[in-house]
Design a protein around this nucleic acid. Sequence first.
DNA 1: CGAGCCCTTGATGCATTTCAACGAATGTGG
DNA 2: CCACATTCGTTGAAATGCATCAAGGGCTCG
Lengths: 232, 232
Amino acid sequence: MSLDINKVVIKTSLASCFGSHFKEVEGANAFIDELAQDAEEISFEQGEYVFREKDAPEYVYIPESGSLMLERSTASGSRQVFAFLFTGNLAGLSESVSYSFSAKALTNCVVIRISRKLMQDIFDKYPSVAKRYHDVTGHILSLILDQLFIMGQKSAHQRLAHFLLDMEHRLGRGTHRFLLPMSRQDIADYLGMSLETASRGFSRLKKDGLIDIESNYHITVLDNEKLISYAD
Amino acid sequence: MSLDINKVVIKTSLASCFGSHFKEVEGANAFIDELAQDAEEISFEQGEYVFREKDAPEYVYIPESGSLMLERSTASGSRQVFAFLFTGNLAGLSESVSYSFSAKALTNCVVIRISRKLMQDIFDKYPSVAKRYHDVTGHILSLILDQLFIMGQKSAHQRLAHFLLDMEHRLGRGTHRFLLPMSRQDIADYLGMSLETASRGFSRLKKDGLIDIESNYHITVLDNEKLISYAD
DNA sequence: CGAGCCCTTGATGCATTTCAACGAATGTGG
DNA sequence: CCACATTCGTTGAAATGCATCAAGGGCTCG
C-alpha cells in the first residue's frame, strides 16, 4: 500500500493525467502525499483484466507502462472497444454502481491503482483538485463525443485513417513510426467494422503509399497530409 | 436575473436533473437560493440556437419545456446529432474552452440558464453539491458510451428500434404513445444513417405491426416485446 | 518441421446509400 | 376558396460499400 512518487514514470504518468501544471493547484501536494501512502503499482500480464464490467468501481487506474483496452461484450459474443489507453491515461473515473466496461491489458503492463474513496476525501478537502479532476472528466467526455462523431459520419476506410493519425499522435512521440499494441480484431471492434475490412484498409493505405507496414504492428506514416485529407 | 424556484415546472426540472433526493444534499438549498437570484428562464423559438459550437461555455442549460437537439456540423455540410434533450435534461455541463457542439431548439421552448461561474462558486463551498454534479456528468458519460456501443454494434433497423424504445421511455410517460419533436432527418443524423433508411425503418416497423404511425410524428408502440427483441 | 495464430486476399451476397420520382401536408397570394 | 409553391416523408431502382464465407500465407513456438 505505497507508491514511490519520486519514480520518474510515476511522476510523468500523473502529470500527463492531471495536466502539466497540476502541482500548482491548491491541495495537489496533499493529494500526491496521500497517493504515496495509499496508492499502489500493480502489474498485469498481457490478456489479463484490470477490472471487469460488473465489478464495483472501487478504484481508478492510470497505466504507467504498457497499454489497456476498454471494452464491452454482448451475450452474443460481439464486442465494442471504447478506447485504447496508454501511459498517463485514466480509466474508471466516473462510474457509479459498477464499471460500464472492462479494462483488458493489451501488453504486459504496470498500472497505478488509486482508491476512489481516497480521491473523494481529497476532493472534499481541496475543491481545486476536484475541479481539476472534473476537467479531466470533461476532456474525456469530449474525446468520446469525437469518437461518436467519427462513428456516425465516416466510411470504414476514413475511420481507419483517422485511427492511424490518432495512434501516430499518441504513440509516435514526434516521429511518424509507431508500434501498435492491439490486433486487427481490436481495431475493427473499436471502429465498428469487420476484421477483414480493417485489414483491407491497411493494405489499401500501404498500396497507395500513405503508410508503410513492416511487421503488422510496426507502422510508419509516410504521407501525413494525404492521410489527413483521406480521413477528411 | 432571477428565477422563481417555486414554479412547479422549475422544481421538477431541477429535481429530474440533479436527482430526486437532491434537497437532502448538504448545500442544495444554498445552491437553489443562488439559482433563484442569478439563474434565468429564457425562451427560444423553434429552430433557434441556444448556443453554438464555438461559443465560450459560460452557461449550463436545463430545458423546462420543449426539446433541444445537440449537434455538430462539418464544413462539408454533414451533421452528427449527439442527443435529444427534454425537460430536466442538462446541456453544456463539462466544456472547457468552447462548447463541443451546438444546441438547437427543436420546438418552441423555455430553458433554465445557469451561470457556470455560479455553479463553480457553490461547488467550492459545498463539496456535496460538486459531487452530485460530478455524478450527473458520470451518468451522461455512461449514456454516451451506450450510444457509442449502439452505433458500433447494431444494424440500421436495430438502431432505429432502439431509438424508438428510448423515446417511448422518455416521452411516453407511462403510455406507449408519444409525439416525436424531431424530423426524420434529425433521427437519421442521430443514428448515423440516411434519411431514406430511417424512413424505411419506420415503414417496416409499421408494416410488421410493431408500431403505429398516425401523423409522421405521432407514434404508438404496439408490441413492446417484439420491438425489444428486434432491437436485440 | 509442423501446429496454431493472426493477417491477407478473393468471391459472393446483403444492407445501406444514392438518385429520382411521387405524395401528403402546410402555407401564400390571387 | 382555390391554384401554387414549398417542405417533408415515402417508395422504387440502381449502385456501392461492407460483411461474410472461404482459402491461403507468414510468423512464432514447440
